[in-house]
């Protein structure tokens, strides 16, 4: 199957004041696939995502979108079709659900298209439909996470980056979130990179997986389900690889 590589990160180095947060990471994501990016705390996973959006300084390495090197200017990236749902939900608490989605479509010039998209994403996340006029600050953690993802989908991105969507959520809600991620990928062919700490259930829906430790890729796996058994993952988390 000849799938186009959409986003490629080549030998990325991010140094935060003396600390090598990302120390030579190369990963890629192709059309239509779900890629899991896992690893212990401080492995550099979130930093990789942030650097794509210009929120972390790049010391060396390249970021390529459709094989072309890009210079990350934070507010320009989403226009290319790449959306980011950062860690901690981070909805606009004083705005309503509907306004959050509207503003998610900020870069779309055609406002009627924005309206249609809002209807679309509300179909994917029906729980948002009933509360559309409520301020998003009043939603539960799980609902806010859905809203954050829905907001990311407003630009109908080719690639969606999710940073620890399960953080702080009950296991039942985490299951729902991952089901939604799967659904979005299947129905809309959106490529999704999901950063997670250690959730084996993610491996069940991913096409490929990377495991990071101390700023470097230590496992590249094209059959992620194989990581769900055995102790290869545990060894990383216990610092043995």
């Amino acid at each position: 199957m000849n799938k186009e590589t959409l986003l490629k990160i080549e030998n990325l180095h991010v140094h935060y004041g003396g600390v090598k947060a990302v120390d030579g990471v190369s990963i890629e994501i192709d059309e239509g696939e779900i890629v899991a990016l896992m690893g212990p705390n401080g492995a550099g996973k979130s930093t990789v995502l942030k650097s794509i959006f210009g929120l972390a300084p790049i010391n060396a390495g390249k970021i390529l979108w459709h094989e072309k090197t890009i210079k990350p200017v934070s507010h320009e990236i989403v226009k290319m079709g790449l959306a980011f749902v950062p860690q901690g939900r981070r909805v606009f608490t004083h705005l309503t659900i509907e306004e959050n989605l509207e503003v998610g479509g900020f870069v779309i010039k055609d406002k009627s298209l924005v309206k249609n998209r809002i209807a679309e994403v509300m179909d994917i996340f029906p729980v948002l439909k009933h509360k559309r006029k409520n301020k998003s600050g009043s939603l539960s953690g799980g609902e806010q996470q859905m809203l954050a993802v829905a907001r990311g989908l407003m630009v109908d991105p080719k690639v969606l980056l999710l940073d620890e969507p399960s953080l702080g959520l009950a296991p039942k809600i985490v299951k729902e979130v991952f089901e939604k991620i799967h659904e979005i990928n299947q129905k809309r062919q959106t490529a999704i990179m999901v950063v997670e700490h250690n959730i084996k259930s993610l491996l069940g829906i991913a096409h490929r997986a990377y495991v990071l430790d101390k700023g470097q890729v230590v496992i590249t796996e094209n059959h992620p389900k194989s990581l769900m058994t055995g102790d290869r993952l545990e060894k990383v988390f216990l610092g043995k690889i």
């Binding site: 959006f53 210009g54 929120l55 934070s74 507010h75 320009e76 990236i77 989403v78 226009k79 959306a83 980011f84 950062p86 981070r90 606009f92 608490t93 004083h94 705005l95 306004e99 509207e102 503003v103 998610g104 900020f106 870069v107 907001r151 630009v155």
Partner: peptide, 18 residues
């Protein structure tokens, strides 16, 4: 709305293209 978004969360506002 963009103004209100920025005052809620400047970093996320950048991410969504403001």
């Amino acid at each position: 709305k963009a103004v209100r978004a920025v005052s809620d969360d400047e970093e996320v506002s950048k991410i969504i293209g403001i």
